[in-house]
Design a protein around this nucleic acid. Sequence first.
DNA 1: TACAGATTGGAATTATTATTTCATATTGAC
DNA 2: GTCAATATGAAATAATAATTCCAATCTGTA
Lengths: 281, 281
Amino acid sequence: MDERVPRDFETLRATILERRASLPKRIAQIAAYALDNPDDIAFGTAASIAASAGVQPSTLIRFAQQLGFDGFTSLQLVFRERLRERNSSYDERLAALRAKAEEGAGHRAIFDGFVAAASTSLSDISRALNDAHFEEAVALLAKAETIYVLAKRRSYPVASYIAYALGKLKIRNQLVESAAGLNAEMIGFATPRDAVIAISFSPYAPATIEETRSIAEQGVPIVAITDSSFSPLAQFAKVWFEVAEADFGGFRSISATMALAMALTVAVGEKRRDAGRKRKA
Amino acid sequence: MDERVPRDFETLRATILERRASLPKRIAQIAAYALDNPDDIAFGTAASIAASAGVQPSTLIRFAQQLGFDGFTSLQLVFRERLRERNSSYDERLAALRAKAEEGAGHRAIFDGFVAAASTSLSDISRALNDAHFEEAVALLAKAETIYVLAKRRSYPVASYIAYALGKLKIRNQLVESAAGLNAEMIGFATPRDAVIAISFSPYAPATIEETRSIAEQGVPIVAITDSSFSPLAQFAKVWFEVAEADFGGFRSISATMALAMALTVAVGEKRRDAGRKRKA
DNA sequence: TACAGATTGGAATTATTATTTCATATTGAC
DNA sequence: GTCAATATGAAATAATAATTCCAATCTGTA
């Protein structure tokens, strides 16, 4: 490899675009393909890429050599490096913000940090959510007579929002929160025809766990939102969701949990409406 | 490959965590390495990965086989797929989510819609937030003896989270929510040395507006979070923030409001700590 | 401590993949 | 149209990497 070989993707891209006009037909063809499908170049084999681009493997290698690489393998490294960097950028940004906030770079950094934490959490959950689990949870909740909502402390805002939204949708629900210590009695009314949404994150509020256990023993199906497979809620739940929230300044985001909670609520509302229509027809 | 092989990274991760305890030493070693360095698994060769993890290549293959894959190559595909998905830039993914949500493909679309709404709201507020206003609000709240938090209905979850966080930071606060109708009395105790965070969105809950007016008349400084310059809260507030939340299916996101609320809370905590240090020095 | 079963290391083998080579085709100048 | 230079296709070869196999080691049990 000589000295002027593009080492990073952007330089490479610029080089290709610059020379595009002067490249022979097949080489130009693979060049266009490379810029359009960088991921394929990163992961594919010379043969598979050549086939997708409609050229011979040898052409692919000639392309690499024209750019100054000593072969396809070295060209591929640039495309792989690009993926690595892109991938880490989010975490890095959060780390940078944390560092900035710690060195006392004004309060704006704190705000940016929370926005970044929320964004990260949202993109994580959007990737991680399992469609089948979601459907199962919706089905389970849609046929409940009363939906009990169970959460304390940090998760309580989510519960109160669920309760508000369920109310708006005219779905009978009961927020288990009583400051008067009547939770046990309240839970006592639940039957297997009802359902529960329980939310708890580490460190799990003992009251939430205790109440979840007790209501599970009555045969009431439970949908849990929690933060790991080791969560004590998982064992009681018919369906459970693992939500990984990024944290900032010691406070974890609750954006992902909120989005999931709202989606569950509205989906349950829709399912009920559909079921209602069917019964009438 | 048999039928129960984890096809996506999250499932694979869960499977590994689940079996972790029962794995032999070297296999456990490579398992831990895989979860800690997923990028290396995606890009490396069996030999290079094995070397980094401090095991033999054959162990790496045994690890893959234990998980049900027929070899290292098939395991690696899962790690590569993860990178491909992650890689698609944030904006692209968001656009895809919106498109999917709009074409209304089942309940997953509802979830995607809420995630998209939350992301949009976050990026909007991140652009719109005025640093000077933020600093002013922090200063005002930091010197308050008691912070009163005022919000009903849809905004109540935000208020309850603020109250929780303030409590954690050992900042005296009072959530005005009493179901017993004692709000007027509660508010009556506030003095100009206190401060208020009031949150309300259209259609503004009459109780919130009434309480805000009354507390403003007592000379208590108010920080308002609301949704437009025409908001009735704006006229009472010393500082106010306009937060535009995107909505989905008739339910507005509250992610941006949450992020702002958390940032305010933590910034107030920091400012107080700094002030405390200075007084001592 | 002796033994069986499981686990591990390391070399041998097999498979896959990149690269080279060479014959053929294409292009552009005269 | 002919020739030389360039480009392309396809198969052969070389390099690299995955996988298998077997002997050695470890672990738990009687």
